[in-house]
Design a protein around this nucleic acid. Sequence first.
DNA 1: CCGTTAGTTCGACTATAGTCGAACTAACGG
DNA 2: CCGTTAGTTCGACTATAGTCGAACTAACGG
Lengths: 106, 106
Amino acid sequence: MKQYDHPLAQDLQLSCLLYALSDPFRLEVVCKLAACQPQPCAPLQDGRPKSSVSHHFSVLRKAGIIRTEVVGVTHMNSLREQELESRFPGVLAAILAVARAGDVPA
Amino acid sequence: MKQYDHPLAQDLQLSCLLYALSDPFRLEVVCKLAACQPQPCAPLQDGRPKSSVSHHFSVLRKAGIIRTEVVGVTHMNSLREQELESRFPGVLAAILAVARAGDVPA
DNA sequence: CCGTTAGTTCGACTATAGTCGAACTAACGG
DNA sequence: CCGTTAGTTCGACTATAGTCGAACTAACGG
């Protein structure tokens, strides 16, 4: 399998970023990635079928939020933090801070 | 017409806020409001039919981003900046800063 | 009162996003 | 090679969001 295409930081759209993060599952994935990078998709599935998970990762990838690298048989995901920070200063950081704070486990 | 109901700051959801701002028209409305508050809906219509505009204002209202007060025959909208800042510190400010920077008129 | 202004609500339509099973693909491991 | 692991792609379905015209509503202004 070839490596993935990732959009250039300069081509990213704020609307797409916000949209991608407005889904609770995707936001959670991003939070978990922020806590532990890089990570394959599997541990983040949270009980969903692989095809759904794959869809969400693809949305995050197209929004420029994550980078996926094929390493052997696993696909390692990481956040494009520096690029996002230079393109959208403060945005991801503020969102992650709030999302983490809301993560109080019941 | 009665005044509107606005959700309490503590009940707001980050996902809803991000979702509301992920629509380019709504983001633009929020930017314009940030520049000039309070403002009625009419000057922000941007050529769309009233029913569409009303829908978008309602989404922003339900997400807790704007407050609408009925003043005579007009409905004055303003951002709930302080409340959003205390509920979601830094989020709106960062998004607005980026959105404004991208507002380079052609 | 009656017209006007400002915006909402309703309903029908369209488009898009998410969901998931099934078939597929790519690379590793023995 | 052949099975396994990890994830993608496809296609069908469902649900939700946005769009807009038409009818409505609330308050003002004369």
